[in-house]
């Protein structure tokens, strides 16, 4: 270990202990010293992990690697245990085995549904992937998963993302129409005015059609078709701009959330 690394590690350890002691002494509403110690440790540890990940911004370092590796292990196990308790104990055991229900203290459904032995068998086949030789048999389970996804998706995407989207675009282009005279005499660029409403519907209808033209591959994009496709790409660019804005907004929110944790829960420096 290099000398500078050792110094940094030492400083981090000392700060950690200092924070632990401080958070233990200031822990609110606790019954025992042990509880205070645990609470102090947990908050300090969470703060340490937050800072360890953030240190990646400076450069890759052992603290970041520690946090990253811990994350991988813990989150995999978390998903496994929750899946086990909620789905296997919750949905499978009550249908197949009274004994297992007894062990895990969950109510038996009262009858054995033998067809429910199929999924655990397929599941075990899936686990065969872990063995070097039996890998091919895991394809049976994989095939079931692929088949289910395909079968579930086909009618639903067709309905919600195709059919309903088409009828959602059946919009009147002349909103609140009472003739040209009325239209011109009330012409304004007010956000709630008639002109803006008409413009909106016009942009939606033409935008959807031209967007589709942009993604149309059976015809060369020339002439009027080419112009339509160019208009389509502009609409798409506005869309991407909106996504861009929202993504930036979302990322910042996460940062604010994390900094609030550091400053409020850990350091306790926000007066309010």
């Amino acid at each position: 270990m290099r000398k500078s690394t050792m110094i940094v590690t030492l400083v981090v350890v000392l700060l950690f202990i200092a924070s632990w002691i401080f958070k233990t002494m200031t822990a609110p509403e606790v019954d025992s010293t042990f509880d205070a110690l645990t609470q102090g440790f947990l908050v300090t540890f969470a703060a340490f992990l937050t800072l360890a990940i953030m240190s990646f911004l400076y450069q890759d370092n052992p603290f970041y690697k520690f946090a990253e590796h811990l994350y991988v292990g813990v989150s995999a196990a978390y998903a496994m245990t929750l899946g086990f308790w909620s789905t296997l104990v919750g949905n499978l055991f009550p249908r197949v085995s009274e004994t297992l229900c007894g062990w895990f203290q969950v109510e038996f459904s009262g009858q054995h549904d033998w067809q429910f032995l199929i999924p655990p068998i397929l599941g075990i086949l899936l686990l065969m992937r872990l063995s070097p030789k039996g890998g091919w048999i895991s394809r049976w389970a994989l095939a079931f998963i692929v088949g289910t996804t395909a079968g579930l998706n086909l009618p639903r995407f067709l309905r919600s993302d195709f059919i309903e989207q088409i009828s959602g675009t059946f919009l009147p282009l002349l909103v609140d129409w009472e003739g040209f005279g009325h239209f011109f005499s009330n012409l304004s660029l007010s956000a709630s005015g008639q002109f803006v409403a008409i413009l909106s519907n016009f942009v939606i209808v033409s935008g959807v059609i031209c967007g589709l033209i942009y993604f149309f591959f059976s015809k060369e994009h020339k002439g009027a078709f080419g112009s339509a496709s160019r208009y389509g790409i502009w609409i798409l660019m506005i869309t991407f701009g909106a996504s861009f804005g929202y993504t930036v907004m979302g990322r910042i929110s996460l940062l604010v959330g994390r900094l609030t944790f550091l400053m409020d829960d850990w350091l306790g420096i926000i007066s309010g």
Partner: peptide, 25 residues
């Protein structure tokens, strides 16, 4: 919705969703 996906859900408004909340705003 998390802000990242909010724009993607707009096409479902107003018939398939009655409204939506996008991001922290």
């Amino acid at each position: 919705l998390a802000a990242v996906v909010a724009p993607l859900i707009y096409p479902y408004y107003p018939r398939q969703v009655i409204g939506l909340l996008g991001g922290v705003k």
